[in-house]
């Protein structure tokens, strides 16, 4: 933000605050300020719009009782205080309720892990969970309605239970089922969620994004934006049949999925990591032959290194 932008904005804020006073009377001064520079109006409108946008949140605030150090002198204010006191009481009761629920269950965590290339299926509570290779899932003996994906990928089949919604935690994010079948991937700090059936809510206490069948959400760990894309429902969880399907996916993602599924380290070199791929990859059968023939499909070169396979730019397209 520039200094000019900030000083303009501060001036606009001053006027919005002054006009907020019911007794405001300097309309001549306000008109003169607006006339002085066309940019003043835009800045002023932006502050008014920001104020109006925040009003619903302010109305929804739990109202804490004020504790004035001076005695009240006017009637309207005393009436207002009585209203807050009631609000404060309700808020306190709700907080108390939450505290009780949370303390009711002592966690007893355990972990289920698969090695690279290994698949495994577990059932807990209302959920059946298929784990892809190189995946670690933390569960709780005392709470069958929550699972934490520490790394890798898992497909969740959840029978919805209104009383006990099933929640998947991924890093700081949470995915809550609304009766459904969905796939969750965690690659470092990046999280992907794809819904095959029913719907889920991503971060119910945060962004609260509802995802329906065929919708996929990608949240990069370092960025504040979420990406919503469409994906074919039938392809979700295809990794269980050694099949991966992509719509405009970066090769870095494809390489990570292949590593998990094949149990062989596959990496995309930096110059092709952001190259996009759309299509289906079936990787059953002989792994070495599959990897050697992968180049034309992904439009890259494939290099067999010491411990890993590297996707590189096609030799003929190099400068």
């Amino acid at each position: 933000m520039t200094d000019r932008h900030n000083s303009l904005r501060d001036e606009a804020i001053e006027w919005v605050i002054r006009l907020g006073d019911p007794a405001f009377g300097d309309w001549e001064g306000f008109t003169a300020w607006l006339e002085a520079d066309p940019a003043h109006l835009a800045a002023y409108d932006a502050v008014v719009a920001a104020g109006e946008a925040v009003d619903p949140s302010l109305r929804a605030l739990p109202q804490t009782p004020a504790t004035p150090t001076r005695p009240e002198t006017t009637m309207p204010e005393r009436k207002a205080r009585a209203r807050w006191a009631a609000g404060g009481l309700i808020a306190a009761a709700i907080v108390g309720g939450l505290g009780w629920t949370a303390m009711n269950l002592r966690p007893a965590p355990y972990a289920i892990e698969t090695g690279p290339g290994e698949h495994r299926i577990v059932s807990i509570g209302t959920a059946t969970i298929a784990l892809n290779g190189d995946t670690r899932l933390r569960l709780d003996h005392h709470d069958p309605h929550v699972a934490t994906l520490e790394r890798g990928e898992a497909l969740f089949d959840v029978r919805h239970d209104e009383e006990h919604p099933f929640a998947v935690r991924v890093g700081d994010d949470e995915v809550q089922d609304v009766g459904t079948r969905f796939d969750v991937t965690r690659e470092g700090e990046d999280v992907r969620v794809a819904v095959a059936e029913g719907s889920v809510v991503y971060n119910p206490r945060g962004e609260a994004v509802h995802l329906g069948p065929g919708q996929q959400l990608a949240a990069a760990g370092d960025a504040s934006t979420l990406h919503l894309t469409r994906t074919a429902v039938a392809d979700i969880g295809g990794w269980r049949e050694d099949r991966l399907s992509y719509e405009q996916a970066p090769l870095a993602t494809v390489a990570a999925d292949l590593s998990r599924g094949l149990g062989i380290d596959v990496e995309a070199a930096p110059d092709v990591a952001h190259q996009r791929f759309t299509g289906v990859i079936a990787y059953g059968g002989d792994k070495t032959r599959f990897l050697a023939g992968l180049g034309p499909l992904l439009d890259v070169g494939v290099e067999h290194g010491h411990q890993r396979w590297l996707l590189i730019r096609k030799p003929e397209s190099r400068p």
Partner: peptide
């Protein structure tokens, strides 16, 4: 249609939600 990205619409909704979340965090 399946396979066609609806990213722009989805992102706009998310941006609005994120903005609301940011405004509430600021409050």
């Amino acid at each position: 249609s399946p396979g066609v990205s609806d990213t722009p619409a989805g992102e706009r909704v998310l941006i609005a939600r994120e903005e609301l979340a940011r405004v509430e965090a600021a409050l």
